[in-house]
Design a protein around this nucleic acid. Structure first.
Lengths: 138, 138
DNA sequence: TTTTATTTGAGAAGGTTTATCATCTGGTAT
DNA sequence: ATACCAGATGATAAACCTTCTCAAATAAAA
């Protein structure tokens, strides 16, 4: 794993973290790339991927391996849950208590050494709920 | 969405479902392809992807959009939770009660129309827990 | 400043999934 | 049985996301 101590403070790194911290959406690597490119037009996509991965390893940010095809990133490190819209793929936070106790239940119900859990709710965001409803009328 | 009524019962479809039903692991599309190919050597990878997707749409099987790079499939349709090994990527079932109540909690805590949830535990399977432990001794 | 190990940008490569399309086939009607 | 046809298949290409490679650039230490 990457050591925090040996990580240089490059402009690219700072701006990637700054831009990710600005939003509460959970952007994909490519969306972060678009955000960062407005300030650093010559940055490479590989640099964004490399640094998001690195920051996730050191725990500076969260890598969300949720449903959908792409990985998403989150500057909020504290454990919390997510909802994903089945229609548009948008991911939002769910502000509810973290169920610490279920890790033990899972540990007892399996042969695994349980290290954590993540809950992903699925449903329709307010925008898509409206349009889907309208579509079902037609 | 694909209608069950208009789905032909092709040999390929039957065997894909049969092979998936045989295992309790949660194979990726490529793993299903390998399993099916032993009985239908001329089947195409696209056919496997197409049918797994189709069966997931009709609810015949479950498509797991869990962490890791690849999607995994499951012949057990009843709601249940999963553990993923952080080391080897293996996915197993967790036999614990489904927390029906948390959907309401999530609905109240968000603007989404909540349709369901999935819990993915992360940890180390017994094999990897051993080898990782040994590695940390060295 | 000079040095050096790390990082970058550009592009290639890898891996997974989806799309395309001529051919084939299961199910139905004849 | 046979013919028909919408739907399915297999082969291949394409799309997509992510990782790798490496010469050039650069942050940080000497």
């Amino acid at each position: 794993m990457q050591e925090l101590t040996s990580m240089r403070l490059t402009t690219q790194r700072q701006i990637i973290l700054e831009e990710l911290s600005k939003v509460t959406s959970h952007p994909t690597a490519n969306e972060v790339y678009d955000m960062v490119r407005r300030r650093l037009p010559r940055i490479g996509l590989g640099t964004v991927y490399r640094n998001l991965e690195l920051m996730a390893e050191t725990g500076m940010i969260l890598k969300l391996e949720v449903g959908g095809t792409q990985k998403r990133f989150d500057a909020t490190v504290a454990p919390h849950y997510h909802v994903r819209c089945l229609e548009c793929g948008k991911v939002d936070d769910i502000k509810m208590q973290v169920q610490h106790n279920i890790n033990e239940t899972a540990a007892q119900a399996s042969q695994y050494q349980i290290l954590g859990h993540h809950i992903e709710f699925t449903g329709l965001c307010s925008d898509c709920a409206t349009s889907t409803h309208q579509a079902s009328i037609n």
